[in-house]
């Protein structure tokens, strides 16, 4: 299982290298938590300041599309976790496919989100030129500004995640990455994917379930 050729410069053994990679990624995840933390701070701050108008606006969002999207992301996380199990078991082919499915679900999430934006634009709820007919009331626009920033930033993360997973799946398909020797690569990249899921788990109640 340990091939010395895979241990890179500053490290002396594969276990040390794996620990460093996982630890590095988790620290990065902590920075992501605080990155979205700024947006959550704004959401919670303004929800306390403008509770009624925020509840009213939140009710106009498409809760069922968002619920469906939550299911999609949770499912993708399950496949990501299975990919790690497959990678550790040395099943490169299964790992590649499972990562592919995870990425496909990510794309499905983005598709649904895009459809939701389109609907909101048509309804005059999106604070973009031409799509903001119904946002005359200040508090309402404030909520939708935050909504667009939060979901937009999240969508950027999903896009990066999809690219990352597809890239690794392609490398497995071309045998550039081998299992189980490089299972750490799968562990580290799926950690990022799970975090995107966790952030959505919090964005969902903060935006759609404001009551």
């Amino acid at each position: 299982m340990t091939r010395s050729g895979l241990v890179e410069e500053p490290f002396s053994d594969p276990e040390q290298q794996r620990r460093a990679a996982l630890f590095g990624m988790t620290i990065f995840l902590a920075t992501e938590i605080l990155l979205f933390g700024g947006i959550f701070a704004a959401l919670i701050f303004y929800q306390a300041a403008h509770r009624e108008i925020f509840v009213e606006t939140s009710r106009e969002l498409h809760i069922w599309i968002a619920t469906g999207n939550t299911v999609v992301l949770l499912t993708s996380s399950l496949f990501a976790a299975l990919a790690v199990a497959a990678a550790k078991a040395g099943n490169g082919k299964a790992t590649g496919w499972l990562l592919g499915v995870t990425a496909a679900l990510g794309l499905a999430f983005l598709g649904l989100k895009g459809w939701e934006y389109a609907l909101e634009y048509g309804e005059g709820l999106l604070p973009l030129a031409g799509g903001d007919a119904k946002l005359g009331e200040p508090g309402k626009r404030l909520f939708m500004d935050l909504y667009l920033m939060a979901t937009g930033l999240h969508a950027v993360h999903v896009t990066i995640g999809v690219c990352l997973l597809l890239f690794i799946a392609a490398r497995i398909a071309t045998r550039a990455t081998r299992m189980p020797e490089q299972a750490t690569t799968i562990e580290v990249s799926t950690l990022y994917w799970h975090l995107i899921d966790v952030i959505w788990v919090f964005l969902f109640p903060a935006l759609y379930l404001v009551r």
């Binding site: 920075t31 605080l34 979205f36």
Partner: peptide
């Protein structure tokens, strides 16, 4: 560095969004 910087990052992003796209946070 790790725990404080991301908050600045997102705050600056909010300013830029306000200036460029009129998303008045």
């Amino acid at each position: 560095l790790v725990l404080a910087t991301p908050v600045l990052t997102v705050t600056l992003a909010l300013i830029v969004a306000e200036r460029l796209f009129g998303l008045g946070i």
